[in-house]
Protein backbone atom coordinates (compact mmCIF):
# COMPACT_ATOMS: atom_id res chain seq x y z
CA UNK A 1 0.00 0.00 0.00
CA UNK A 2 2.97 2.24 -0.63
CA UNK A 3 2.84 5.33 -2.81
CA UNK A 4 4.26 3.35 -5.74
CA UNK A 5 1.23 1.05 -5.71
CA UNK A 6 -0.62 2.57 -8.64
CA UNK A 7 2.23 2.47 -11.18
CA UNK A 8 2.78 -1.17 -10.15
CA UNK A 9 -0.76 -1.99 -11.21
CA UNK A 10 -0.30 -0.16 -14.52
CA UNK A 11 2.98 -1.93 -15.18
CA UNK A 12 1.35 -5.24 -14.37
CA UNK A 13 -1.52 -4.55 -16.76
CA UNK A 14 0.83 -3.48 -19.54
CA UNK A 15 2.92 -6.63 -19.21
CA UNK A 16 -0.09 -8.91 -19.02
CA UNK A 17 -1.70 -7.31 -22.06
CA UNK A 18 1.47 -7.89 -24.08
CA UNK A 19 1.54 -11.50 -22.91
CA UNK A 20 -2.08 -11.89 -23.98
CA UNK A 21 -1.23 -11.13 -27.63
CA UNK A 22 0.55 -14.44 -28.42
CA UNK A 23 -2.11 -16.32 -26.45
CA UNK A 24 -4.92 -14.83 -28.51
CA UNK A 25 -2.98 -15.30 -31.75
CA UNK A 26 -2.51 -18.97 -30.85
CA UNK A 27 -6.21 -19.32 -30.15
CA UNK A 28 -7.04 -17.69 -33.50
CA UNK A 29 -4.80 -20.15 -35.40
CA UNK A 30 -6.21 -23.17 -33.55
CA UNK A 31 -9.79 -22.02 -34.10
CA UNK A 32 -9.15 -21.58 -37.78
CA UNK A 33 -7.50 -24.97 -38.26
CA UNK A 34 -10.03 -26.91 -36.20
CA UNK A 35 -12.97 -25.38 -38.01
CA UNK A 36 -11.43 -26.39 -41.33
CA UNK A 37 -11.85 -30.00 -40.23
CA UNK A 38 -15.64 -29.66 -40.16
CA UNK A 39 -17.29 -30.83 -43.37
CA UNK A 40 -19.22 -28.38 -45.56
CA UNK A 41 -18.96 -24.65 -45.95
CA UNK A 42 -21.23 -21.64 -46.19
CA UNK A 43 -21.66 -22.19 -49.93
CA UNK A 44 -23.14 -25.67 -49.34
CA UNK A 45 -25.68 -24.18 -46.96
CA UNK A 46 -26.53 -21.26 -49.21
CA UNK A 47 -26.95 -23.59 -52.17
CA UNK A 48 -29.04 -26.00 -50.14
CA UNK A 49 -31.38 -23.24 -49.04
CA UNK A 50 -31.66 -21.84 -52.55
CA UNK A 51 -33.00 -25.24 -53.56
CA UNK A 52 -31.15 -25.50 -56.84
CA UNK A 53 -27.64 -24.29 -57.55
CA UNK A 54 -25.39 -25.35 -60.36
CA UNK A 55 -21.86 -26.51 -59.53
CA UNK A 56 -20.61 -23.60 -61.64
CA UNK A 57 -22.51 -21.10 -59.51
CA UNK A 58 -21.17 -22.70 -56.30
CA UNK A 59 -17.62 -22.58 -57.63
CA UNK A 60 -18.13 -18.95 -58.51
CA UNK A 61 -19.37 -18.20 -54.98
CA UNK A 62 -16.33 -20.01 -53.49
CA UNK A 63 -13.99 -17.92 -55.62
CA UNK A 64 -15.83 -14.80 -54.54
CA UNK A 65 -15.57 -15.70 -50.84
CA UNK A 66 -11.95 -16.82 -51.22
CA UNK A 67 -12.81 -20.36 -50.16
CA UNK A 68 -11.09 -21.98 -53.14
CA UNK A 69 -7.61 -20.99 -52.09
CA UNK A 70 -5.28 -23.32 -50.13
CA UNK A 71 -5.83 -23.38 -46.37
CA UNK A 72 -2.51 -21.81 -45.45
CA UNK A 73 -3.23 -18.85 -47.75
CA UNK A 74 -6.63 -18.45 -46.14
CA UNK A 75 -4.99 -18.66 -42.70
CA UNK A 76 -2.46 -15.96 -43.56
CA UNK A 77 -5.21 -13.72 -44.91
CA UNK A 78 -7.29 -14.37 -41.81
CA UNK A 79 -4.46 -13.56 -39.40
CA UNK A 80 -3.54 -10.45 -41.34
CA UNK A 81 -7.08 -9.15 -41.15
CA UNK A 82 -7.36 -10.07 -37.45
CA UNK A 83 -4.29 -7.98 -36.66
CA UNK A 84 -5.85 -5.02 -38.40
CA UNK A 85 -8.96 -5.65 -36.28
CA UNK A 86 -10.93 -6.57 -39.39
CA UNK A 87 -12.95 -9.67 -38.55
CA UNK A 88 -14.24 -10.12 -42.06
CA UNK A 89 -17.67 -10.26 -43.59
CA UNK A 90 -20.51 -12.64 -42.86
CA UNK A 91 -21.71 -13.75 -46.26
CA UNK A 92 -24.63 -15.42 -44.65
CA UNK A 93 -25.94 -12.39 -42.75
CA UNK A 94 -24.62 -9.94 -45.30
CA UNK A 95 -23.06 -7.76 -42.63
CA UNK A 96 -19.54 -7.14 -41.26
CA UNK A 97 -18.73 -9.65 -38.51
CA UNK A 98 -17.64 -6.93 -36.09
CA UNK A 99 -20.97 -5.13 -36.42
CA UNK A 100 -22.85 -8.36 -35.76
CA UNK A 101 -20.75 -9.15 -32.70
CA UNK A 102 -20.88 -5.68 -31.20
CA UNK A 103 -24.62 -5.74 -31.73
CA UNK A 104 -24.97 -8.93 -29.68
CA UNK A 105 -22.17 -8.46 -27.14
CA UNK A 106 -24.03 -6.25 -24.63
CA UNK A 107 -26.79 -8.82 -24.24
CA UNK A 108 -24.30 -11.61 -23.51
CA UNK A 109 -22.23 -9.46 -21.14
CA UNK A 110 -25.40 -8.47 -19.30
CA UNK A 111 -26.45 -12.12 -18.97
CA UNK A 112 -22.95 -13.26 -17.95
CA UNK A 113 -22.36 -10.54 -15.38
CA UNK A 114 -25.83 -10.87 -13.87
CA UNK A 115 -25.41 -14.63 -13.62
CA UNK A 116 -21.97 -14.24 -12.07
CA UNK A 117 -23.35 -11.68 -9.63
CA UNK A 118 -26.22 -13.97 -8.61
CA UNK A 119 -23.87 -16.96 -8.29
CA UNK A 120 -21.38 -14.99 -6.19
CA UNK A 121 -23.87 -13.38 -3.82
CA UNK A 122 -26.01 -16.49 -3.34
CA UNK A 123 -22.96 -18.79 -3.21
CA UNK A 124 -21.31 -16.61 -0.56
CA UNK A 125 -24.49 -16.38 1.50
CA UNK A 126 -25.19 -20.12 1.35
CA UNK A 127 -21.55 -20.99 2.03
CA UNK A 128 -21.32 -18.70 5.05
CA UNK A 129 -24.62 -19.98 6.48
CA UNK A 130 -23.48 -23.59 5.97
CA UNK A 131 -20.21 -22.93 7.75
CA UNK A 132 -21.95 -21.18 10.65
CA UNK A 133 -24.37 -24.08 11.16
CA UNK A 134 -22.02 -26.86 10.15
CA UNK A 135 -23.57 -30.34 10.47
CA UNK A 136 -26.84 -28.82 11.65
CA UNK A 137 -30.10 -28.84 9.69
CA UNK A 138 -29.46 -25.55 7.86
CA UNK A 139 -26.16 -26.89 6.58
CA UNK A 140 -27.75 -30.17 5.47
CA UNK A 141 -30.62 -28.39 3.74
CA UNK A 142 -28.17 -26.24 1.83
CA UNK A 143 -26.08 -29.30 0.97
CA UNK A 144 -29.13 -30.97 -0.60
CA UNK A 145 -30.08 -27.80 -2.47
CA UNK A 146 -26.53 -27.38 -3.75
CA UNK A 147 -26.35 -31.00 -4.86
CA UNK A 148 -29.57 -30.63 -6.84
CA UNK A 149 -28.57 -27.38 -8.54
CA UNK A 150 -25.15 -28.84 -9.30
CA UNK A 151 -26.54 -32.00 -10.83
CA UNK A 152 -29.40 -30.61 -12.93
CA UNK A 153 -28.60 -29.91 -16.60
CA UNK A 154 -28.83 -26.17 -17.26
CA UNK A 155 -31.06 -26.42 -20.33
CA UNK A 156 -33.56 -28.65 -18.57
CA UNK A 157 -33.61 -26.32 -15.57
CA UNK A 158 -34.22 -23.41 -17.97
CA UNK A 159 -37.13 -25.18 -19.62
CA UNK A 160 -38.67 -26.07 -16.25
CA UNK A 161 -38.26 -22.49 -15.08
CA UNK A 162 -40.15 -21.31 -18.17
CA UNK A 163 -42.89 -23.87 -17.56
CA UNK A 164 -43.29 -22.82 -13.92
CA UNK A 165 -42.65 -19.07 -13.79
CA UNK A 166 -43.90 -18.07 -17.24
CA UNK A 167 -46.35 -20.79 -18.08
CA UNK A 168 -48.10 -21.71 -14.82
CA UNK A 169 -47.55 -18.64 -12.68
CA UNK A 170 -47.19 -16.05 -15.43
CA UNK A 171 -44.81 -13.97 -13.30
CA UNK A 172 -41.97 -13.56 -15.74
CA UNK A 173 -41.57 -13.48 -19.53
CA UNK A 174 -40.37 -16.69 -21.14
CA UNK A 175 -37.91 -15.33 -23.65
CA UNK A 176 -36.29 -12.45 -25.53
CA UNK A 177 -34.63 -9.48 -23.91
CA UNK A 178 -37.41 -6.93 -24.21
CA UNK A 179 -41.13 -6.87 -24.72
CA UNK A 180 -41.35 -6.58 -28.52
CA UNK A 181 -44.90 -5.24 -28.53
CA UNK A 182 -44.11 -2.35 -26.18
CA UNK A 183 -41.84 0.59 -26.88
CA UNK A 184 -40.33 1.39 -23.50
CA UNK A 185 -37.74 4.07 -22.74
CA UNK A 186 -35.66 5.00 -19.69
CA UNK A 187 -36.54 3.34 -16.41
CA UNK A 188 -39.42 1.29 -17.76
CA UNK A 189 -37.03 -0.10 -20.38
CA UNK A 190 -34.50 -1.02 -17.70
CA UNK A 191 -37.25 -2.71 -15.68
CA UNK A 192 -38.42 -4.60 -18.75
CA UNK A 193 -34.90 -5.88 -19.44
CA UNK A 194 -34.49 -6.84 -15.78
CA UNK A 195 -37.71 -8.86 -15.84
CA UNK A 196 -36.51 -10.64 -18.97
CA UNK A 197 -33.04 -11.25 -17.54
CA UNK A 198 -34.11 -12.84 -14.24
CA UNK A 199 -34.91 -16.34 -15.51
CA UNK A 200 -31.97 -16.81 -17.90
CA UNK A 201 -29.47 -15.30 -15.46
CA UNK A 202 -30.76 -17.38 -12.54
CA UNK A 203 -30.69 -20.51 -14.69
CA UNK A 204 -27.13 -19.87 -15.80
CA UNK A 205 -26.13 -19.06 -12.21
CA UNK A 206 -27.35 -22.30 -10.58
CA UNK A 207 -24.37 -24.50 -11.44
CA UNK A 208 -21.80 -21.90 -10.38
CA UNK A 209 -23.81 -21.02 -7.30
CA UNK A 210 -23.47 -24.62 -6.17
CA UNK A 211 -19.72 -24.65 -6.76
CA UNK A 212 -19.23 -21.35 -4.94
CA UNK A 213 -21.38 -22.36 -1.98
CA UNK A 214 -19.33 -25.53 -1.48
CA UNK A 215 -16.08 -23.66 -1.92
CA UNK A 216 -16.98 -20.88 0.51
CA UNK A 217 -18.18 -23.39 3.11
CA UNK A 218 -14.88 -25.27 2.98
CA UNK A 219 -12.79 -22.10 2.96
CA UNK A 220 -14.76 -20.65 5.87
CA UNK A 221 -14.38 -23.81 7.95
CA UNK A 222 -10.67 -23.79 7.24
CA UNK A 223 -10.50 -20.11 8.19
CA UNK A 224 -12.30 -20.74 11.47
CA UNK A 225 -9.59 -23.16 12.53
CA UNK A 226 -6.83 -20.67 11.78
CA UNK A 227 -4.71 -19.11 14.50
CA UNK A 228 -5.65 -15.56 13.53
CA UNK A 229 -9.31 -16.30 14.27
CA UNK A 230 -8.29 -17.31 17.80
CA UNK A 231 -6.30 -14.06 18.01
CA UNK A 232 -9.35 -12.07 16.95
CA UNK A 233 -11.42 -13.83 19.64
CA UNK A 234 -8.74 -13.15 22.23
CA UNK A 235 -8.93 -9.47 21.26
CA UNK A 236 -12.61 -9.47 22.19
CA UNK A 237 -14.09 -9.29 18.68
CA UNK A 238 -17.73 -10.31 18.23
CA UNK A 239 -18.55 -13.44 16.26
CA UNK A 240 -20.15 -11.37 13.48
CA UNK A 241 -16.97 -9.34 13.18
CA UNK A 242 -14.86 -12.47 13.14
CA UNK A 243 -17.02 -14.01 10.42
CA UNK A 244 -17.10 -10.98 8.13
CA UNK A 245 -13.74 -9.28 8.66
CA UNK A 246 -11.48 -12.21 9.35
CA UNK A 247 -12.87 -15.54 8.14
CA UNK A 248 -14.81 -14.40 5.07
CA UNK A 249 -12.10 -12.00 3.98
CA UNK A 250 -9.68 -14.91 3.76
CA UNK A 251 -12.26 -17.25 2.24
CA UNK A 252 -12.66 -14.86 -0.72
CA UNK A 253 -9.25 -15.83 -2.08
CA UNK A 254 -10.06 -19.38 -3.28
CA UNK A 255 -13.42 -18.11 -4.51
CA UNK A 256 -11.73 -15.55 -6.73
CA UNK A 257 -9.40 -18.19 -8.16
CA UNK A 258 -12.37 -20.36 -9.06
CA UNK A 259 -14.20 -17.40 -10.56
CA UNK A 260 -11.27 -16.59 -12.85
CA UNK A 261 -11.11 -20.19 -14.02
CA UNK A 262 -14.82 -20.36 -14.69
CA UNK A 263 -15.34 -17.18 -16.70
CA UNK A 264 -14.84 -19.14 -19.90
CA UNK A 265 -17.29 -21.85 -18.91
CA UNK A 266 -19.89 -19.27 -17.92
CA UNK A 267 -19.51 -17.80 -21.40
CA UNK A 268 -20.00 -21.19 -23.04
CA UNK A 269 -22.87 -21.94 -20.67
CA UNK A 270 -24.50 -18.80 -22.01
CA UNK A 271 -24.85 -20.48 -25.43
CA UNK A 272 -27.29 -23.04 -24.05
CA UNK A 273 -29.19 -20.61 -21.90
CA UNK A 274 -29.48 -18.06 -24.70
CA UNK A 275 -30.92 -20.75 -26.96
CA UNK A 276 -33.48 -21.84 -24.38
CA UNK A 277 -34.59 -18.29 -23.58
CA UNK A 278 -34.17 -16.90 -27.13
CA UNK A 279 -31.83 -14.33 -25.61
CA UNK A 280 -30.32 -12.24 -28.42
CA UNK A 281 -26.70 -12.73 -27.41
CA UNK A 282 -23.39 -13.96 -28.78
CA UNK A 283 -24.10 -17.55 -27.80
CA UNK A 284 -27.14 -17.82 -30.02
CA UNK A 285 -25.30 -16.02 -32.79
CA UNK A 286 -22.52 -18.61 -32.50
CA UNK A 287 -25.07 -21.42 -32.62
CA UNK A 288 -26.69 -19.99 -35.73
CA UNK A 289 -23.32 -19.45 -37.39
CA UNK A 290 -22.39 -23.09 -36.83
CA UNK A 291 -25.62 -24.28 -38.45
CA UNK A 292 -25.02 -21.94 -41.37
CA UNK A 293 -21.32 -22.93 -41.69
CA UNK A 294 -20.66 -19.19 -41.45
CA UNK A 295 -16.98 -19.60 -40.71
CA UNK A 296 -16.05 -15.94 -40.66
CA UNK A 297 -18.70 -15.12 -38.12
CA UNK A 298 -17.93 -18.14 -35.95
CA UNK A 299 -14.21 -17.36 -35.96
CA UNK A 300 -15.00 -13.78 -35.04
CA UNK A 301 -17.17 -14.83 -32.12
CA UNK A 302 -14.60 -17.33 -30.87
CA UNK A 303 -11.83 -14.74 -31.09
CA UNK A 304 -13.95 -12.18 -29.34
CA UNK A 305 -14.83 -14.62 -26.57
CA UNK A 306 -11.19 -15.49 -26.02
CA UNK A 307 -10.37 -11.77 -25.76
CA UNK A 308 -13.17 -11.27 -23.22
CA UNK A 309 -12.05 -14.27 -21.13
CA UNK A 310 -8.40 -13.19 -21.25
CA UNK A 311 -9.26 -9.64 -20.19
CA UNK A 312 -11.46 -10.80 -17.32
CA UNK A 313 -8.69 -13.14 -16.15
CA UNK A 314 -6.18 -10.28 -16.10
CA UNK A 315 -8.66 -8.27 -14.02
CA UNK A 316 -9.11 -11.23 -11.65
CA UNK A 317 -5.35 -11.49 -11.16
CA UNK A 318 -5.13 -7.78 -10.40
CA UNK A 319 -7.99 -8.02 -7.89
CA UNK A 320 -6.30 -11.08 -6.36
CA UNK A 321 -3.18 -9.09 -5.63
CA UNK A 322 -5.37 -6.42 -4.10
CA UNK A 323 -7.21 -8.91 -1.84
CA UNK A 324 -4.11 -10.81 -0.79
CA UNK A 325 -1.09 -8.63 0.02
CA UNK A 326 1.15 -11.70 0.02
CA UNK A 327 0.84 -11.79 -3.76
CA UNK A 328 3.08 -9.28 -5.45
CA UNK A 329 2.14 -8.13 -8.92
CA UNK A 330 5.65 -7.98 -10.35
CA UNK A 331 6.31 -11.70 -9.87
Amino acid sequence: MSSSHFPTVLKFLRRRLWLAVPVIAGIAILNFLILQLAPGDVVDVLAGEAGAATPEYMAQLRTEFGLDRPIYVQLVFYLKSVFTLDLGFSFRQNMPVLTLILDRLPATLLLMLTAMGIALVAGLALGVISSLYVHRWADRLIAVFVLITYALPTFWLGLMAIVLFSGRLGWLPSGNMTDISADYTGLTYAWDVTRHAILPAATLATFYLAVYAKLVRTAMLESYGADFIRTARAKGATETRITLFHALRNALLPLLTMLGLQVSSILSGAVLVESVFSWPGLGRLAFESILARDLNLLLGILLFSSVVVTLINICVDAVYAFLDPRIELQH
Binding site: A226, D227, F228, R230, T231, A232, A234, K235, H246, R249, N250, L253, L323, D324, P325, R326
Partner: peptide, 15 residues
Amino acid sequence: AMIFQEPLSAFNPVQ
Protein backbone atom coordinates in the same frame (compact mmCIF):
# COMPACT_ATOMS: atom_id res chain seq x y z
CA ALA B 1 -4.60 -10.10 26.75
CA MET B 2 -2.88 -12.99 25.11
CA ILE B 3 0.11 -13.48 22.86
CA PHE B 4 0.73 -16.61 20.86
CA GLN B 5 3.47 -18.95 19.85
CA GLU B 6 3.61 -18.37 16.10
CA PRO B 7 3.17 -14.67 15.30
CA LEU B 8 2.93 -15.28 11.54
CA SER B 9 -0.18 -17.41 11.73
CA ALA B 10 -1.59 -15.48 14.69
CA PHE B 11 -1.90 -12.33 12.57
CA ASN B 12 -4.52 -12.11 9.87
CA PRO B 13 -2.44 -12.41 6.68
CA VAL B 14 -4.53 -10.01 4.60
CA GLN B 15 -4.64 -7.05 6.98
